[in-house]
Computed example of a mutant assay.
Amino acid sequence: MMDLTQRLAGKVAVITGAGSGIGLAAGRRMHAEGARIVVGDIDPTAGKAAADELDGLFVPVDVSDEAAVNNLFDSAAEAYGSVDIAFNNAGISPPDDDLIENTELPAWQKVQDVNLKSVYLSCRAALRHMVPAGKGSIINTASFVAVMGSATSQISYTASKGGVLAMSRELGIQYARSGIRVNALCPGPVNTPLLRELFAKDPERAARRLVHVPLGRFAEPSELAAAVAFLASDDASFITASTFLVDGGISGHYVTPL
């Protein structure tokens, strides 16, 4: 019988943004399922702490820098022999990314570099290792705002996540017959430090978000981590190029439930 608690035994998982939030939760879940974890993060303190907790490898990385991203994936392969899973998760949502009339070009570009260009670089770097092996699973963090509009706009964030979704879909199709699956994880609002910071600054804006979640709460990082571990595993062997929504029902409703 298959031990489902060890679905990822022998796999090597590279995670960007693994020092906190969804990335750290996914690292914990995949480690618990048997994977070796390579932590990529720009924060050396958080990244090293995560790697120590997960008995993994920490590689500092600025995900918008091509050489740094290549080094992350090459270091993973050198240390553990393969790159089987890439969870390209790092992202930002700064306060100067707002309504389009209030968002200046430098703010727009910074978000595009960290949220979209980084996924392009990470997919390229992962595929260099996965294509010769003829196998692999890439999970890219998009968002529910990639499939529906938001009245509380973060224009560059929304555009970047739309790009992640489209790119993931195309790569999933292109590499399907190479044995590599590529899926876009589309979370709804998640109870992470990033969201809590937003709520502290603007409770009214936060309340407007919460009322539209049919389940009546935000996701916990561990709930997204469970979805990541599933997509990384052979249980998802017939799933590629998907828009994998984990949004509490937000994208499925018309009238907000009482």
Rank of each mutant, 00 (worst) to 15 (best):
A25D: 12
L198S: 14
T152I: 15
E170A: 15
A35S: 13
P193V: 13
P94S: 11
I100K: 03
K110C: 00
I180S: 07
N183F: 04
R128F: 05
L210A: 12
L224N: 01
V213I: 15
A107V: 02
Q109G: 00
H31M: 06
E53D: 14
D247M: 08
G10D: 08
S137C: 09
L72A: 04
A79Q: 14
V114C: 05
V39A: 14
R177V: 11
A9P: 03
G179Y: 11
D97G: 09
T5H: 08
T158F: 05
V69W: 09
D97S: 08
L116K: 01
G188V: 12
S153C: 13
A26E: 10
I42C: 02
G27K: 11
G56Y: 02
V39C: 13
N88L: 11
F144L: 13
S237M: 02
Y254K: 12
A225R: 03
D41G: 09
V14Q: 09
E197V: 05
D202A: 15
T141K: 05
H212I: 06
L198T: 10
G216D: 09
N71L: 07
V145I: 12
V164L: 11
Y157I: 13
F144H: 09
D113H: 02
M167Y: 15
V83W: 02
L198Q: 15
H212R: 15
N88S: 09
Q154P: 01
V228A: 03
S178Q: 15
G21M: 11
S222T: 07
N183V: 04
I173K: 15
D3H: 09
L224H: 00
E101L: 14
R208S: 14
V131C: 00
Y157N: 14
I173H: 14
G34R: 08
R181F: 10
S137H: 06
T240W: 04
P214K: 03
A32I: 06
D96Y: 03
F230Q: 02
L24M: 08
V213D: 00
A146P: 07
L195H: 09
S143Q: 11
N183M: 02
V246S: 04
Q6S: 09
P193H: 13
A68Q: 15
N183I: 02
L224I: 12
Y120D: 03
N89L: 08
A86E: 01
I100E: 01
E223F: 07
L195P: 08
L245Q: 04
G248S: 11
H129A: 02
Q109R: 14
N191Q: 14
